[in-house]
Amino acid sequence: MAVLVIAEHDNQRFKPGVTNTIAAAVKMGGDVTVLIAGHQCGAAANVAAKVDGVKRVLLCDAPHYVGAPAENLAALVVSMAPQYTHIVAPASGFGKNFMPRVAALLDVQQVSDISAVESPDTFVRPIYAGNALQTVQSSDKIKIVTVRATAFDPAGDAATPAPIENLAPVAGTGLTQFLGQELSKSERPELTAARIIVSGGRGMGSSENFKILEALADKLGAAVGASRAAVDSGFVPNDYQVGQTGKIVAPELYIAVGISGAIQHLAGMKDSKVIVAINKDAEAPIFSVASYWLVEDLFKAVPELTAKL
């Protein structure tokens, strides 16, 4: 067996979840090769070489991989596919974008967002916003799998670095043209990598009011997240959204403030180790998953919490 992991990186470092994806790949069995595709991303290949379980790193450097366009990345991965039994990527925005394209071109039914590896061909995945867990067995020759990073512990450091080989790029498809990205800037940790997350919902009332959450986050060294209602109301940018259709997180501590606890929100955070809920409604469903819950007005509780920490 031979497993290919496609790593998401920013040229220098891995994005959150890649080492967890490598750990899942190791569980599938066989040798793990990591592909680093991008432009001027040699440093990321050095990072990949030092991850435990990685046998070989392939570095493919060309301008048409900037922004990881699905069409070009899929063409590259498809050209490599005959050598592998498994092709694996994180179930992040990156993996969700190009992996189904790879699968369709190889005539394979992808297994999305797995939370456990039962055997080389059998995987567990959450369905219905995490309300059920489905165990599926793939009959395809190549298994194409995206991994829910929060369900796997990250791989550690390798004793000796794996060799890095250069891989010739495959011609670009020319189907799309990358115009640019607008990234939300923040000094705080990334949501999917943070040890602590402070999340606000519609109860926050305004983008101005989110400042009291940010003050708490800064005191705790935490990332800031949000419910869909808070994002849709324009309090915070869309990439703050936690949930079924936003980010899946599982920090050590998740503090939900003014969030009712709709199933679609719980889907994104209920695997957090400790959950704190602050809500003025004693009947809020969020309390059903909370380790500790405080029934209080957030405008009183949050500043007090920040002051007393």
């Binding site: 309300n131 489905q134 165990t135 793939s138 959950i275 380790s291 500790y292």
Partner: peptide, 17 residues
């Protein structure tokens, strides 16, 4: 291409305080 072997309930969180 995928055969569903089982569908189960996710583990419940123990109730908090």
């Amino acid at each position: 291409r995928l055969k569903t072997l089982s569908v189960t309930e996710p583990p419940k969180r123990s109730s908090g305080v």
